[in-house]
Design a protein around this nucleic acid. Structure first.
Lengths: 213, 213
DNA sequence: TATCCGATTTATGATACAGTATTCATTACG
DNA sequence: CGTAATGAATACTGTATCATAAATCGGATA
């Protein structure tokens, strides 16, 4: 069982170039005393080499290119796209619990694209960086990034981003018969009562948490 | 304070074109009988119209384009990218702790692209889906997705993916003077001693955890 | 023997060019 | 008089062309 290794791109094999047995000598100008004169700016070295020249596939892209019209505002993005190539990466599965497990062959689950996996409604999605620890028990840590979708209905029990008194906050929504609360997931903090639903503007529902190790 | 709404792209406003009061008449060739002759292939209509011409922003992209070199194999992908545009989404910051906070204007932190943010070395990166809870205290839950980079050196204390006895596992690496351990982050589990480093193959270092709410 | 050199081939980014699309307002036609 | 046609003008796209940079060859020189 070896770690997944991307197969190196094979560099073009150098085709042996047939050596020219006969190189036409640089025509020399022979003076009266048989002294050879070099052309101005030349050292007497170098010269034609049949078969010399840059091999194909030695450019930054390793393949031929084509000129394509790109809207001016997207040129940078496109060049970055070409450089980094956002294609789906392999997804494996592994056991954390018992270490008991499935046969090795079952580890490759498929492939995954982050944007596709996490962003269902791009035009309604934005990110929120968290500060604080009031939602620690829900697995939301300081500096985590939340994926927030404002097209999802903020149902009871959902973790939402809301603006209260002009301040953004992340909490779990709790709507009782009589009142609405924004619930923390940390015993050190108290629920925030919302007197009037007009005092709160819900920005969206948290769909994912991204935590950097 | 309203939820972030994508500002519609303004379509170019058509500038009213000043009508020319004086059009220079087509020079006519007068024959002996005062008969006007048209130039060959012309009907007498048409002619110069100062200010006529296609307005800007009427192409498929609505803006000027630039010719860019794209590797041949990626031309289709790039054109699709330009059409659908997976562009960075807005990133806001918010307070979880005190709910005290910065003024509303400070909430927009910038924009963020998931791939750019999470995948530093695409060719050395893969994902792992977790099963079990032995790393719960490190914020790694059942079914979470781990971003794993095998180009990062597996230093002591890093959370790694390793293959032990043919099974994939996620643990924290602990190298003592005498022995290597794979440490869980859950008191219900015991450290796994590695007798011989050849008994373990490290697949990579965990860089991020993605937890769906 | 190692390095230098000039010629050669490949590759990229910028620019030019030819053809297509859109607009203006005057003229011809019914 | 109303409408369609017209020729010139401007914007736009895809491809060709050009200038320059990069990589290679093998003979000449130190």
């Amino acid at each position: 069982m070896t770690p997944p290794i991307k197969t190196p791109i094979k560099t073009p094999v150098k085709t042996p170039v047939k050596t020219s047995a006969q190189t036409t000598p640089e025509p020399s100008v022979t003076g009266g005393n048989n002294v050879t004169r070099l052309p101005p700016g030349k050292t007497g070295r170098g010269g034609a080499r049949p078969g010399a020249g840059r091999p194909k596939g030695q450019g930054p892209y390793g393949e031929p290119t084509k000129a394509v019209r790109i809207p001016v505002s997207m040129v940078d993005q496109v060049l970055n796209f070409v450089k980094t190539g956002t294609k789906p990466l392999p997804l494996f599965s592994c056991s954390v619990a018992a270490g008991f497990p499935s046969p090795a062959d079952d580890h490759l689950e498929g492939s995954l694209d982050l944007n596709e996996h996490l962003i269902k409604h791009p035009s309604a999605t934005f990110f929120v960086r968290v500060s604080g620890d009031s939602m620690i028990k829900a697995g939301i840590h300081e500096d985590d990034i939340l994926v927030v979708d404002r097209s999802i209905e903020p149902r009871n029990g959902k973790i939402i981003i809301a603006a209260v008194e002009g301040q953004l906050t992340v909490k779990r929504l709790n709507r009782t018969k009589t009142q609405t609360f924004l619930m923390p997931e940390n015993d050190a903090y108290a629920p925030i009562p919302i007197a009037d639903d007009n005092d709160m503007v819900i920005w969206g529902v948290v769909t994912s948490v991204i935590h950097q190790v």
